[in-house]
Nucleic acid binder design. Sequence first.
RNA 1: GUCUCCUUCGUCUAGUGGUUAGGACACCGGGUUUUCAUCCCGGCAACAGGGGUCCGACUCCCCUAGGAGAUGCCA
Length: 493
Amino acid sequence: MKVRVRYAPSPTGLQHIGGIRTALFNYFFARSKGGEFILRVEDTDRERYSEEALQDLYDTLEWLGIQWDEGPVVGGPCGPYVQSERFDLYREYAEKLLEEGKAYRCFCTPERLDALRQEQKKEKKSFGYDRHCRNLSQEEIDNKLAAGMPYVIRFKVPLEGKTFFEDVLLGKVTRKNKDISPDPILLKTDGFPTYHLANVVDDHFMKISHILRAQEWIPSGALHVMLYEAFGWEPPVYCHLPMVMGKDGQKLSKRHGSTSVVEFREKGYLPEAIINYVSMVGWAYDDKREFFTREELEKLFSLEKINKAPGVFDYKKLEWFNGQYIRKKSMEELTELVLPYLKKEGIVSDPVTEEEMETVKNMMPLMAERLHLLSDITKLSAFLFKDITGYEAAALIPKKMDAEGTLRILKEILTAIEEIVKADEQEAETIFRSMAEKLEVKLGSVLMPLRVAVTGSTVSPPIIGSVKLLGVQKTAERIKIAIDKLEREVLNG
RNA sequence: GUCUCCUUCGUCUAGUGGUUAGGACACCGGGUUUUCAUCCCGGCAACAGGGGUCCGACUCCCCUAGGAGAUGCCA
């Protein structure tokens, strides 16, 4: 059987981690089997539809490097792939069920349904539609129709018996028909189908072989099977994916932190890291390997290795993966990746000047292993481009030292600064070492005041390299400022 | 409330009747180092509970407990 799978999001919000994980699994499964990956836009909810969300879907998939074989934009033999463009099809099939007595018109108002739900909640009775319109007489129906009353079409769920489906991961999942949602709506008042109708009709005509979707769909699995049976179609193979949870074990949501892929993208996560990490939530290759490129997953992915239990999304581990992938980048690649962040924060001009570009290129080796996110670059490198903001004079003084000693160190460095900047890394360090020996302090005690004077912080990239990047003049200026600060401190007691 | 699914370290997981229950993140120590970071070494830490089946159960079966999801004119 030819593998044909689909990712069918609704453009009502930004693509989030859970959704994209489903997309990835579908995509990898298709690729690993030499099958087709189809994208379908389920835009039947006209209330929540958003153009921005649709664009975000395309942007996100492109950013991740996931290409669909059939779908919007690229087209295909089973199109259109946007449900709103298949409008008539759903009505046709809903009416077919109507004619065959497998569905019925329901004239209940939203108000009535709402009241019903309230009451059920209050009395703690089981929830659901009370099948009020299931047995209207033909006369009643004709009257309401003639009066122009709006209606929906509901599926007539059998009252007796049971329905099951076979799930690749879960095995046989059975439900008693009486436990299935009582007569779900197939076609809404506005003529658009609900998910239940649309997905069954489309999956059938798009010849979908396997449905990989989140486990939140398990309860409607049996209903969908009934619909396939009602139409006389063969249902596809089901595979319900474990859900992605937040730290508290609830379905992952904004409460837990960033959930949309764009957010991660903006913060400076790499697509490689997202793909790799997200794929490891609910899937593992073996006990020793956890680094996979998209291309490798396209070959190695398999349904059998998917876990059944839900998985907690670990932001820390994603960040660690990101750091790993950042360190795999060449300095040239990293420079390009980091540039937008520097521009956005106004660290460099936009467009970058040649001089700035030169500094950015040269600073990358110092920065690379300190980045977890690409956006970390701004705080790390600002001192190279901007005047440093105020720091406490006390910060200049290394541990176990006093202001006088520190002053001596800074003055000593100032006299040698030109020599230091001109020397190469090794020579410069030798100069500092002999300086430390002469002043009878540790190397670190010499470098710390310099570090603070130059970067404004006790935490910085390697200071010798930083000083060389900054140049004699600026370094000297900042040392002088530091000396000033300290002297004032000493004078004021 | 009802139905369905799930249950190995804090987290992601390996494990398919006989293992000192392995790895990774996080955390805690230590080392390298120019602060931080990187890197290296070490440590902590789990089979939810109770019954069976079996010579032998993390692995198979049942029950309990806990968690999650569904119960929409949202998907």
